[in-house]
């Protein structure tokens, strides 16, 4: 098979998305994950899920820029990586923090509002991951776009989940919150003030 330029770039994106996971594994195996690897892994996978979700949302504004239209080819992969890290985040929490103890899992997922919010965000991403294939895009047609609108509430819930954990400082939450506002604000502006005709410019 001929390795075209696009397959090369595709693999580049694929490796870049997997890199944080590989790096975390390396840190754990080589005992460089700190005094409490459990907490480190939960925090790191959560943050990477958030980053990939934001990158997915950034594709639409960025592809309008000159010479960046090709980004759309990688939006599906970015979204799937967001889902991948969100699932790892959940599994790390249940395995490393709760040890799969049923009583603890039940307690945390019923009594902790910030955990419920985080879980809701992940549940909204689930149907998007499942229907991300070309088969489902064709089968759902216009409804595919409607369904994938769910990424917006999922991102907002993920941000709320993050904000609810503010302790001694909120610098990170301010950064990610501002970026989300820009990403969502862009869409609101485009929708509210559509260009009348592209030919006039």
């Amino acid at each position: 098979m001929v390795l075209t330029r696009w397959t090369a770039i595709w693999w580049l994106f694929w490796c870049a998305g997997l890199a944080p996971f590989v790096l975390l594994m390396y840190q754990v195996v080589t005992d460089q994950a700190g005094a409490d690897p459990a907490q480190m892994l939960v925090l790191a996978t959560g943050l990477w899920a958030l980053r990939f979700l934001w990158l997915t949302l950034a594709v639409t504004p960025l592809r309008r820029l000159p010479r960046l239209g090709w980004l759309i080819r990688f939006r599906r992969m970015l979204g799937l990586y967001a889902f991948f890290y969100a699932v790892l985040h959940l599994l790390a929490f249940i395995t490393f923090i709760l040890g799969w103890r049923v009583d603890l899992v039940w307690r945390e997922f019923t009594e902790r509002p910030y955990i419920v919010v985080g879980l809701l965000s992940l549940l909204l991403l689930l149907p998007l991951a499942v229907t991300s294939t070309t088969y489902w895009m064709r089968r759902l047609g216009r409804n595919w776009v409607r369904l994938h609108w769910l990424i917006y509430p999922a991102a907002v819930l993920a941000m709320v989940h993050f904000i609810m954990q503010i302790r001694a400082g909120y610098a990170e939450q301010l950064l990610y919150g501002s970026l989300l506002l820009i990403l969502l604000g862009y869409r609101a502006v485009v929708k509210l003030f559509p260009k009348k005709s592209r030919k006039t410019c």
Partner: peptide
């Protein structure tokens, strides 16, 4: 409950 450190990853000391 609490996790006593050091806590093994796959068998947390709860």
């Amino acid at each position: 409950t609490e996790r006593r450190l050091p806590s093994p990853l796959f068998n947390p000391d709860i």
